[in-house]
Simulated assay, not measured.
Amino acid sequence: MKMKNVLAIVIGVFFTHIAISQEGLPIYTDYLTDNYYLIHPSMAGVANCSKIRLTGRQQWFGQDDAPRLLTLSLNGRIGDSQSAFGGILYTDKNGYHSQTGAYVTYAHHLMFSRSEVDLNMLSFGLSAGLIQYKLDETTFLLDSPIDDPAIDGIVQSRGNFNIDFGFSYHYLDFYAHATVKNVLKNKGINTDIDPVNQTDNLRRYLLSVGYVFNKYGSEWSYEPSVMLQYRDATEEASIDVNAKVYKQMDFGKIWGGLSYRNSFDGAEYLTTSNSVRSQKLQQITPIIGVNYNQFMFAYNYTYQTNSLVFTNGGYHQFTLGYNFNCKRKRYECNCPAVN
C-alpha cells in the first residue's frame, strides 16, 4: 500500500476526534471564551447579564473543504425569576458532510445560601435540538469510473431530534458542570452506505471543574480548570487542562489563557519503514480576550502537536459577544461566569 494512502486512512480515522460530522455541535475550546453555555445547558441564564455570543472557526487555511463552524447563542434570565431560557443556532461543514442545527434551552437555578452575597447555587438545564445532516454526493460519480449502487449522486439529507441534559454547581469561587449530550438514540446520514459500522448511540458525557483564585485587593485573578469528555459508543475519552488569567481594568477586563487537549486513545499508522506506530490527539490552544463595557472579543488559535498531521496550519476561532439586561453584581466571589 502506498504511503499516501496509509496517511489518508490514518488521518480520516484520527481526526474523528476533532471533526465529528454527525454528533451535533462540535466540542472545541470555544467554551473558554466566556461561552460555557455552548456545551452545558445548565449555564443558560447563570450570569447577571443576558448574553449573545457569535463564534466563527476555520481549520486548515488554504485547504479545500476544510472544516468550518459558525455558532450564534443567546441566553438569559426570565426577569427576576430563577428560570432562564437560551438558544443556539449553528452550521458546521466538513468536506462533503455538513449539518445545521438549532437548540432551545430551559434552565432553573436554585439558591441554597441565605442571601445573594455568598454564592451557593445548583442549576439544571435541558436543551432540545433539531439537526439536519447533509451529504453532498453530486461529484462522487464524476470522480469514480465505477458505478456504485450505494451512491445516488444527489445531496442526501436527514433530520434528527435529540436532547442534552446537565447540571452546574457554583459555590463561592468553585464551579462544576456535568452534561449528557445526545441522550436519545438516532443515526446520522451514512446508514445505507456502511450499516455495519454505524451506531445510533451518539451519547457523550462532559464534566468540567474549576476554581478562581484572587488575592484580596488585587486586580489579578487566576482560573485553572479541567474538562473531561467521554464518547459512549466508541469508549473514547479526552481531557482539556486549562489555565486563564484576568486583569481588572477601568473599562472592563483583559484576559488570556492556555488550553491543552489530550486524547486517551490513539490511532495506529505505518511509517516509511513499514513499522507500526501510534499517536494520540494533542492540541495546544492559546486564548486572548477583552471585555470592554458590555462588549466582548476573543481569539484562540489551536495547534496540533502530533508528528503526523494533515497540515501544519492551525485552527483560528473568533468570538464576539454582547451583554445586555445587566443587573448589579450579586455575589462576593471571583466568578467571571456568574458576576
Rank of each mutant, 00 (worst) to 15 (best):
K2C: 13
K2P: 15
M3S: 08
V6K: 14
L7D: 03
I9Y: 07
V10Y: 14
T16E: 15
H17P: 09
A19M: 12
A19R: 05
S21E: 13
E23V: 12
G24R: 00
T29G: 04
Y36V: 08
Y37C: 10
S42C: 04
S42E: 00
V46Y: 06
N48I: 06
T55Q: 08
Q58W: 15
D64Y: 09
D65N: 11
D65H: 08
P67L: 09
R68W: 15
L69G: 04
L70K: 03
L72P: 09
L74F: 11
N75Y: 07
G76E: 07
I78N: 05
G79L: 07
D80Q: 15
S81H: 09
S81A: 09
Q82Y: 11
F85L: 09
G86I: 01
G87N: 10
G87C: 05
I88H: 05
N94G: 03
G95L: 02
A102N: 07
Y103A: 14
M111G: 14
V117K: 14
E137T: 04
F140N: 05
L142Y: 13
P145F: 08
I146G: 11
I154G: 10
S157Y: 03
I163Q: 00
I163M: 08
Y171T: 09
L172K: 14
D173K: 05
H177I: 00
T179Q: 01
T179L: 00
N182W: 03
V183H: 06
N186C: 06
T191H: 08
D194Y: 14
N201A: 04
R203H: 08
S208V: 01
K215V: 13
S218Y: 01
W220D: 05
S221C: 06
S221N: 09
Y222E: 09
P224S: 02
S225T: 06
M227P: 01
R231M: 12
A233R: 05
A233Y: 11
E235F: 01
E235P: 00
E236Y: 00
A237R: 00
A237V: 00
K244Y: 09
K244I: 03
K244S: 15
Y246G: 10
Q248C: 10
M249G: 12
D250F: 15
K253I: 04
I254M: 12
I254L: 12
L258H: 05
S263I: 03
F264T: 03
D265C: 09
A267K: 12
Y269M: 06
L270D: 02
T272I: 10
T272Q: 13
S273N: 14
N274T: 11
Q282K: 13
P286L: 04
I287P: 06
I288D: 01
I288C: 07
I288S: 06
N291L: 04
N293E: 08
N293W: 15
Q294V: 02
Q294E: 11
F295R: 02
M296V: 12
T302E: 11
Q304I: 04
N306S: 08
N306A: 06
S307V: 12
F310M: 13
F310A: 13
N312S: 12
H316D: 10
T319N: 03
L320W: 00
G321E: 03
G321A: 00
Y322C: 01
F324C: 07
N325R: 05
R328L: 13
K329Y: 11
E332C: 13
N334K: 11
P336D: 02
P336T: 02
A337P: 02
